[in-house]
Design a protein around this nucleic acid. Sequence first.
DNA 1: GGCATCTGTCGAAGCGCTTCGACAGATGCC
DNA 2: GGCATCTGTCGAAGCGCTTCGACAGATGCC
Lengths: 338, 338
Amino acid sequence: MVTLAEVARHAGVSASTVSYVLSGKRSISAATRERVENSVRQLGYHPNAGARALASSKSNIIALMVPLRTDMYVPVMMEIAMAVATAARTHGYDILLLTGEEGAQAVRRIEGSALADAVIVMDVQLDDERLPLLRTASRPAVLIGLPSDTSGLSCVDLDFAAAGAECAQALADLGHREIAVIGEAAAVYERRTGFAERTLAGLRERSAELGLRLLHRPCEGSYASVSATLARVFDERPGVTAFVVQNEAATDPLLALLRQSGRAVPEDVSVVAVCPEQVAAHASVPLTSVAVPAQEMGRRAVEQVIAKIEGRGADEEVVLIEPELTVRESTAQAPAGA
Amino acid sequence: MVTLAEVARHAGVSASTVSYVLSGKRSISAATRERVENSVRQLGYHPNAGARALASSKSNIIALMVPLRTDMYVPVMMEIAMAVATAARTHGYDILLLTGEEGAQAVRRIEGSALADAVIVMDVQLDDERLPLLRTASRPAVLIGLPSDTSGLSCVDLDFAAAGAECAQALADLGHREIAVIGEAAAVYERRTGFAERTLAGLRERSAELGLRLLHRPCEGSYASVSATLARVFDERPGVTAFVVQNEAATDPLLALLRQSGRAVPEDVSVVAVCPEQVAAHASVPLTSVAVPAQEMGRRAVEQVIAKIEGRGADEEVVLIEPELTVRESTAQAPAGA
DNA sequence: GGCATCTGTCGAAGCGCTTCGACAGATGCC
DNA sequence: GGCATCTGTCGAAGCGCTTCGACAGATGCC
């Protein structure tokens, strides 16, 4: 492996000069800089990460805690994780992948060993066990998700409450009066996952304001579960003319089952989903939806956490991304008979 | 941050003794060991990762290159990645997440900076541009996937050729003579992704042996794409009584469309898929399938790469996991009329 | 034109570990 | 009982960087 000392010798300068060329922390004459940069290129030099971290107390690594759950529909999570990794690289950072398995323990380990300069936490519960630790941690942390109490924390999330409200509003605007919500798996609520509860709260609030009848049922992504939920819904509320789908895994089964039961979408029943663009656009009936902007969430989280690492940015900052509802083919005016 | 020197002082021993207690590389008396371990616990000591890496030339980090593609169905990839991360932790390693975006560049960077002790590469193409670099790299590499030329490489993969053969065999055993393969997206073949081609090769070979008529069509995961593919298949081969699905995203649309077109599964048409257990088990008709053992693949790759890091294990080792076909409800005897 | 300030570069110290050689004291052997 | 070997511990060097203070030489100012 090529070392900084070898680069220095090759360029005929001192080691510190090479270091300053690389970091830009002191001004260096153009001639010297060029000579050094040439040597770096010629020798194929890469600074040793360990040595750099030790000397500067900065690892240029951001830890990312991803959930290790099977009941969470993974594509959004994966998309966010990839967006985080990509954004981090553009700022010269690498991503250390922590599975949720270690839990709070991992935060302590990362902090103690100085492995990472900061932590980004996904899949945050309203009352997450990791919050106290993150509040007092010596390293910056940013949550992707919104807990109940955000004091002393930085968060990035879609404004799911507003998303829920938008769904209710859009359906009300089309004349729908009875709406059913195909929720997330029961386990997701039991864990008190923020986005699920907030979407629901937004739906309920706006529905109340608009005088809509709302029925909410948790539902897993499997065909069988959607089928059972659907039967129950129509049994309890035969007048339902619209669905809001929270669980993105349920969209395909729902559309298939509606078709099977002789209900046309959107003529007989409207469907609105909260899900990634791709899922909405590629459904058997392209879905009117509020997008979960995975890319933007990942990018914003990285920007925020780097601002904190660099000492810019507030200690406490909540970024709520405005939801955007895109009308596709799954919604229409409520049927006249309803 | 607590340092090793502070632990040493607290325990009344030298720094090197603390180091040897931690690493176990020299024998230490029980009494001293206990005293040191106590101090470590009391002070909440975590070794500084950078210092350790610098002194020992070992980072205890494994880099994982995951694909950054949108045409690959992600759940398997995510499951493998998580399995890798979990397995790595049980061996005391962390995972550095590299997106495919950087490509071969990333391998060079990791190697030069000594950021990771080894690399695990996912989404390998038959003729992958990263292979030459991986062959000559000074650090161990393990591929999850199988390129055409495995010389000088270590690989872990499902034996997709055998998986394809098993699918053909199972359908032949049930009396099916005409089979259609719903393939991966065309782009997947264009990239010459190993698993897609090998599955197909296995299917073709065994079909030829058994005298089956085989029709293969690439297909994207969207409803529209499956619909078009299906129409074409029945147009070109009206006698088809069985499907093999390679693209796991296509399973749900396929089942829905068959149902819609009045074909009962498995009475009129049998369906076999190559996909993760979960997808097969939760489909609207539980699918007879060959599982993609994501967990095992991740675990084996980690074990292999760690063996190499520790100097055990061969330079070149190809682990092909035996496929297992599980019969569920989507297959039956070929209809008599066919 | 002389003194203060800038600019560019260097050398040395230090970051927190691991590891090597040394060695005191205990143990084993004939 | 004396010498060789083991066992357990220590101190020092070194891993490859960053960063601080120093300082020579160039530049600016009245």
